[in-house]
Design a protein around this nucleic acid. Structure first.
Lengths: 332, 332
DNA sequence: TTGTAAGCGTTATCAA
DNA sequence: TTGATAACGCTTACAA
């Protein structure tokens, strides 16, 4: 597999100095004359010396890896959100010489995460979503292992970076309500996901701001199959709904297809809006009004915070209000 | 961050044996009485001992990581294919105690890959697509670093696992041609991607099998913007095309939108088919005829081959013909 | 069958 | 400012 790699000893011998000195030149720790430092640095550059991360890790008890946790359970395979997370995170980690390890979680099964933590394969973890009952977060907390979560959490011990889902959804709901639309229904996702709850709260706040009373007959959760969507749609229509807000792009897609199948015209029969935008929504006729979040920023912040945390700095969570509401044909 | 972890020395002392013996019990290498082996194994289980991977790696010169390379350049952010790759690969790696490192590549910039290889952060690499001019593959080849590529390659030195794009596209093209559709046009992707070339060859073979002559006026590549799609569509229509085959789901999506905008009816004015299926296509009216590949199988095979290769076994590439052609409304 | 001891390539603690 | 040398936790000749 190629010639043997050059080690710190080789560098030291070639330069007639000790490896301690070489190590110091590289790390910047400890006193060293700038002359020798430069000599070492130059030699290293020219001979393409790279410290062996296993040895470094063994000595420092670090891996220079962080783990990104993906929920491999439901229909996440087609949600580009998690892929984007990695891209955003890597923007930050790549300039810190640290790499990204992917780790799957299936429902309550956090075995892989445990393996990574117990085997010390990573120095920290990023959770790409937050749950109300969250075994992953609980586990990491119990181990006192550095991690940050993308999403909202009601546990003050977990550091989170989140979009302002509440505000965005409140605003969209309010805007819709102002278009003399009074019977606004909601198609919600998994209530064990905090994002579902946050968006729901935003929805309620939007109604309130518009002076509308929430009506629980117009709210449903765990809408995750085409079948449920169409059944609930029927029900909403019978009740006289004139707008349906969907919690994410998947649900919106299913709803739009359902409307088409049953010959329900959007927006004339019913309006449709989505609390999350994606390429999935660009195919529909009419296009679907939606909130567009700047996910990449979110991911970069999460990565930055985690790296700080690993370095022993104290970090705080943050809520990012970088979104826009894009009004399209579905709510005309 | 929690109490200190238990080491192989602790195990050895607790059991009054040497750490060599413990090591042997775990690895299975070297002779050892089954009695002591079981004793060790049991102790390890009960006390939740995990070998330190840095130390193990340092001694064995291994990392128990493989790197998966993502092309972060073009519009890949919305292509779930690469996300699926990781899921498929992890099915295999997770039972081999090895983890997945993500590595981005931007155009010709393979700096991150180089860093991972030179820093020995992984034992092998999986390339998730193949290029005609492929700096990543060339680099890995030059370093003699273990890797397998997902996709076709004309370099016999690179081990590849690929869908039978040629056959699938030939079959779909032939089927369309048999529907008394004679002027079949093609909207192609990046010609530097082998997948583009393979699908193109399949297209040509399909025409030939149907007794049709290829017409270069009906072939275009590098179709990557809405603008190009609509311009080319105009052109094809003027030439009297009665079907357009698209190389992937992105192009198909753009085409369907373009047709809608210009009031071109599918399939009555023109038929549409896609050489790659995805959720993106399920939103259209009518639904789009497409080839559906079983990607997960592909990824699992790639992972399996790479692990074998890392273990020093000789592996061969393979072509998987696990696909189905799904005829839908767009080609009625 | 088991143990001793020498590596693996760093960092870090003392001395010098 | 520099340098021996002992960790770090494991594998593996080589001995016993």
């Amino acid at each position: 597999m190629e010639r043997k790699k050059i080690t710190i000893d080789d560098v030291a011998n070639a330069l007639n100095i000790s490896k301690t000195t070489v190590s110091r030149a590289i790390s910047g720790k400890g006193r060293i004359s700038s002359k020798t430092r430069e000599m070492v640095l130059e030699f290293i550059k020219e001979n393409n010396y790279k410290p062996n991360p296993n040895a470094k890790g063994l000595a420092e008890n670090k891996t220079y890896n962080i783990a990104v946790v993906w929920p491999a359970d439901y229909d996440f395979l087609d949600l580009p959100f998690f892929q984007r997370c990695v891209v955003g995170i890597s923007k930050i980690t790549s300039v810190h010489d640290t790499d990204i390890l992917i780790c799957m979680t299936k429902g309550d099964d956090i075995g892989e995460l445990k393996r990574i933590v117990e085997n010390r394969k990573a120095d920290g973890v990023i959770l790409t979503r937050t749950l109300v009952e969250d075994p992953a977060a609980d586990y990491l907390l119990s181990k006192d292992f550095p991690f940050v979560a993308i999403g909202y959490s009601d546990n003050s011990r977990v550091i989170t970076v989140d979009n302002n889902n509440f505000e965005a959804c409140r605003e969209l709901t309010y805007i819709i309500a102002m278009k003399k639309t009074e019977k606004i229904a909601l198609l919600g996702g998994n209530p064990n996901h905090f994002i579902t709850m946050q968006r729901y709260r935003g929805f309620l706040a939007g109604l309130k701001k518009a002076g509308l009373k929430p009506d629980e007959r117009f709210v449903s959760f765990s809408v995750d199959t085409e079948r449920k969507v169409s059944d609930i749609l029927d029900h909403y229509i019978k009740l006289g709904a004139n707008c349906v807000m969907c919690m994410d792009d998947m649900i919106s897609s299913m709803l739009m297809r359902s409307c088409k199948e049953r010959g329900i015209a959007v927006p004339s029969d019913i309006r449709v809006a989505s609390f999350y935008d994606s390429k999935l929504l660009s195919s529909f006729d009419p296009p679907v009004t939606a909130v567009n979040f700047n996910d990449l920023i979110l991911d970069e912040r999460a990565a930055g915070s985690l790296l700080d945390m690993i370095d022993g700095k104290t970090v705080t969570g943050e809520v990012i209000s970088d979104y826009e509401i894009i009004l399209k044909g579905s709510t005309k």
